[in-house]
Design a protein around this nucleic acid. Structure first.
Lengths: 268, 268
DNA sequence: TAACGCGTTTGATCTGTGTCAACGCTACAT
DNA sequence: ATGTAGCGTTGACACAGATCAAACGCGTTA
């Protein structure tokens, strides 16, 4: 039991329940000591307010790569702030088809899908060993009602998710394969930058298949697009290590519509 | 000025501002008299609580077909509950491509995209003459903090939007053209049912192009799919009048994956 | 009543991406 | 070290849906 076989999918054993004793920690000061304050729920709160948040965020949960933070159908009790690590969320159709709906990194909030039906509607899976702060939702609402800044910021976080979903729809609905991948890379780059990492060099934690699922493409198409970008000197790919050589070039891919609608006024 | 030319796109004149005097009404009892209580924001509130909501919802706004409720970039000040009518929301890319991100009907809430950046990130356009209740957001937050049931229900409404977006992503990412259209029709049917209208016979308020944009397809493909459904006796189409003849058949289209992934265990 | 415009339908053809298949690379396990 | 499994790459081919084009129907306007 000390050696844990790496779980790649549908980990059967110790992450079925919502809380696994071994992976839960008590902590004294959660948010007030956290370096993700500026990205996460505490954003915009005063120090005193953040200290009140601490009382909420009393447990953390550690997940090994491949483990589920929650599964579709699980009771909704808490939302989760990612402290370290990387996640994906995906939805399942009855016929077995699935779709990755997002990739989440440090400072981002998971679990808001569960509020509406009091049941989670997607799976959240750690793509690397990760740690999340557990934020019991009832308590969050309690504190929100006492602290208007927190309430407002939480609304912004939910709204941000809605706005993010809009761009994914735009991506899936209107963009060609290489545009999608360019958008994906630029989005990652931007989010890494925000977190103080390199904008141009990073490690993908997901497979080509997961990227493809997110972008509505097959893994082969993703792979070909990577190769093509490399041929064109836009990026250097080495397995999961990506180096962006021409950020502006990638952006051009997005804004310059190669072929369509030649009859627009092109204003602004 | 009494005769208003039907505005089809980018109405230039009287809907630029956020509020048009002529189309705003004061009202005494908004929610407590409204027959949409069970669908809309008041859901789950007591009568007394609903009466407190009334004070919030003091203005309505009427929109002619084609007019914008709000535009991308407009200051966010309020969310809107649809009292009567039908809307679409769409997002614009810099290069002119756009994507319909949703169709909204009575009882549904518009505008939550604006919370995160205090600016709307999509356009909301009336697809028929419509009326919305204006809910000033600052006041909604104020009242939410005093009324936990309202706060909680509002969170559910936002979360529901996130869940809806997940299914749109699934649709755009994994479904074939006819599956998308079937899903679209079934979704409409379901929502009409909820509102007491026929599940099997309704009038589409949007064009084939708008349907296509929403579904990530071209209008020709939408049209062909309609024709094909009709040939198969699933629906009867007559311009924008749709009659569903075989609801179960439409559902089968969704769950029976015709060709792909023959190597799954098919469990549950 | 005729003419126009817009949305829709339908056909013919083209093409981007999916599908199928083989091979290569890397990392872990024996 | 060497074998093996999973992931990634690349090629050949197929096909769903896009594109281009023409005609139709319906409502509006002259």
């Amino acid at each position: 039991m000390t050696q844990i076989k790496r779980v790649t999918e549908c980990a059967p054993s110790d992450d079925i329940g919502n809380v696994v004793p071994l992976t839960v920690h008590s902590l004294k000061a959660a948010c007030s000591q956290c370096n993700l304050q500026e990205l996460c729920l505490p954003l915009g709160l005063s120090e005193a307010e953040i200290e009140r948040l601490d009382s909420l965020v009393s447990t953390r949960r550690k997940l090994k790569r491949g483990n589920h933070l929650y599964r579709t159908g699980a009771d909704f009790e808490a939302i989760y702030a990612i402290k370290t690590g990387f996640f994906k969320t995906d939805v399942l159709m009855e016929d077995g088809r699935d779709q990755v709906t997002g990739f989440q990194m440090a400072g981002e909030i998971l679990g808001m899908d569960g509020i509406s039906l009091e049941t989670h509607t997607c799976n959240a899976v750690a793509l690397e060993d990760s740690e999340v702060c557990v934020i019991p939702f009832a308590q969050l609402e309690q504190l929100s009602s006492e602290m208007r800044t927190l309430q407002h910021h939480f609304h912004k976080v939910m709204s941000r998710e809605i706005v993010r979903d809009q761009s994914v729809m735009m991506l899936l609905g209107t963009m060609r394969a290489e545009e999608r991948l360019a958008a994906f890379l630029l989005n990652l780059s931007q989010r890494f930058t925000t977190r103080g990492y390199s904008a141009t060099e990073f490690h993908l934690r997901m497979t080509r298949e997961e990227i493809g699922s997110y972008l509505g493409l097959k893994l082969e198409t993703v792979s070909r697009a990577f190769s093509h970008f490399q041929e064109n000197g836009l990026i250097a790919v080495q397995q999961k290590h990506i180096r962006i050589l021409d950020l502006a070039g990638l952006r051009t891919l997005l804004t310059h519509t190669p072929l369509p609608t030649p009859q627009r006024s092109r204003g602004a």
